[in-house]
Design a binder for these strands. Structure first.
Length: 483
RNA sequence: GGCCCGUUGGUCAAGUGGUUAAGACAUCGCCCUUUCAAGGCGGAGGCACGAGUUCAAUUCUCGUACGGGUCACCA
């Protein structure tokens, strides 16, 4: 076995990239990187019925967006290719033949109908399949195969004894061999099952750490028997606790977005998603910090810190993580994000992207919140007198009318419409009139926004809107209050 | 149901045979304040239960309960 740590991400192209899959990919990547090893990508497309067009592309896109670079894979090749299982069919039949020859597997001719019947009456002596074809006469078998009769290849499980293996996360696990079914290795269509292909490929590709979801824990003994039958070294197993929804059930559609690209479309940053799932079922023991970049995770990650219990995927925490990442984004990148979303909404209307980005930065949870938050800027909302009422600032429609009337000519006189002059002017007004800042600012802000709650205050809103629009809105507000 | 696995506040979690049992999210309060946020400070809230081992168990063992996984020609 190779001494260099090597892990693999082996998704099947059956749909979008689920958060659980991405978490597996992340841990596989981190285990490899943290030990200076290799990380490879393998496509497990042995189920032709569940194949989904475009799923492979989604896998590449996701890995790329998350920064999970692989060292070997279908797109970049490598020493152990091909990396797509449907291109390795001859290997599986070759290895299955060896198993049959050595007495570790056997052809089975049972029809699906017969299997269904067995499943119905639970009186069988064995677990699952009743081993009907396990000891057929070899000559008879050869004859039936020659005649073209369809068959599958099944693993011949030991009838007694027990199998023990050690998992990095779950420790030592032992099961009675009687509990193991003679599982199918090669399907009647000639394709291998996952149960067979994963063993052959992981060995051939020199995978040292088999990392996967804990749903595979119970079939791992069968894989161990397979490795033994071939005389292969058994790799280290790292089974990951499941990710579940807030109701304790397996994470699914009804819990919200569970696909990576779906979350991105919802306005979550890939970096935040990665950080979030890294901390689902794992935590560094030395530090209490929870914001880590992928590069930082690569150095601090250790399989030792992986928990055994299923973890709930909490959107609350994801939201917080996303806010943290938004705040840490380089200004120009954040500005571009805001601009891309705001431009089409403002359309021809001029506005200050810089001020908008600044104001939004501390207030946005996810990008998709933005349109609603800035709607009042692109649309003049109707005023109501109640809007101007604010108990704490001792403000109401009448007071607001006075303030705005005083303010209008002064604002109109402002030639340089920038933050410094605006706040200087407004501060001066407060001083001269003896009014509370909250009163003046509040009146102006509501006049500009026609909305009680806004991202940013009066001066910021005036800046975003620009001189012309701001003055027009102010004048409209006065007209409303006085009319 | 059989087999396997798990159980530290609502959630993610650190940790130990003797600790005031970290920290984060959420929640509540206060401060700050140009609304709302952000930020700062503080509060409430926990070792599932029962035995056993031990001078001492959250920590070790066994049961119970609860939860999850798995029992496919799917992965």
């Amino acid at each position: 076995m190779s001494t260099v740590t090597k892990t693999r991400f082996a998704p099947s192209p059956t749909g979008f990239m689920h958060i659980g899959n991405l978490r597996s990919a992340l841990y596989e990547y981190l285990i490899a990187r943290s030990e200076g090893g290799k990380f490879l990508l393998r496509i497990e497309d042995t189920d032709r019925e569940r194949y989904v067009e475009g799923a492979v592309e989604a896998i590449y896109r996701t890995l790329d967006m998350c920064g999970l670079r692989h060292d070997e894979g279908p797109d970049i090749g490598g020493p152990n290719g091909p990396y797509v299982q449907s291109e390795r069919l001859h290997l599986y039949t070759e290895y299955a033949d060896k198993l049959v020859a050595s007495g570790h597997a056997y052809p089975c001719f049972c029809s699906e109908e017969r299997l269904a019947v067995i499943r119905e009456n639970e009186e069988t002596e064995y677990i699952g399949y009743d081993r009907h074809c396990r000891d057929l006469d070899p000559a008879f078998v050869a004859q039936r195969i020659a005649s073209g009769e369809p068959y599958v290849v099944r693993q011949k499980m030991p009838l007694e004894g027990e199998t023990t293996f050690t998992d990095v996360v779950y420790g030592t696990i032992t099961v009675m061999n009687q509990e193991l079914e003679d599982q199918i290795l090669i399907k009647s269509d000639g394709y291998p099952t996952y149960n067979f292909a994963n063993v052959v490929d992981d060995h051939l590709m020199e995978i040292t750490h088999v990392v996967r979801g804990s749903e595979y824990l119970s079939s791992t003994p069968k894989y161990c028997i397979l490795y033994d039958a071939f005389g292969w070294d058994i790799p280290k197993f790292v089974h990951l606790p499941l990710i579940i929804g807030e109701d304790g059930k397996k994470l699914s559609k009804r819990h919200g977005s569970t696909g990576f690209e779906e979350l991105v479309a919802d306005g979550y940053l890939p970096e935040a998603i990665i950080n979030m799932i890294a901390f689902l079922g794992w935590a560094p023991s030395e530090e209490t910090r929870e914001i880590f970049s992928l590069a930082e995770l690569e150095t601090i990650f250790s399989a030792k810190g992986i928990n055994k219990a299923p973890a709930v995927f909490a959107y609350d925490k994801l939201n917080w993580m996303n806010e943290q990442y938004i705040r840490r984004l380089p200004s120009d990148r954040w500005r571009t994000m805001v601009k891309d979303i705001a431009d089409p909404l403002f359309n021809e209307q001029p506005y200050s992207v810089d001020m908008l980005a600044r104001v939004l930065r501390e207030r946005v949870t996810k990008l998709s919140d933005i349109p609603e938050m800035i709607h009042f800027l692109t649309e003049r909302l109707p005023y109501t007198r109640e809007l101007f009422y604010n108990k704490r600032a001792k403000l109401d429609a009448d007071v607001a009318s006075n303030i705005l009337n005083e303010l209008y000519p002064k604002l109109e006189a402002v030639t340089v419409w920038d933050e410094a002059s605006l706040s200087a002017l407004l501060g001066q007004v407060c001083e001269e009139t003896g009014r509370k800042k909250g009163q003046v600012m509040g009146a102006l802000r509501v006049a500009l926004a026609a909305q009680r709650v806004t991202p940013g205050g009066a001066t910021e809103t005036a800046m975003i809107l620009g001189r012309e629009e701001a003055l027009e809105r102010l004048s409209a507000a006065i007209k409303f209050l006085d009319g």
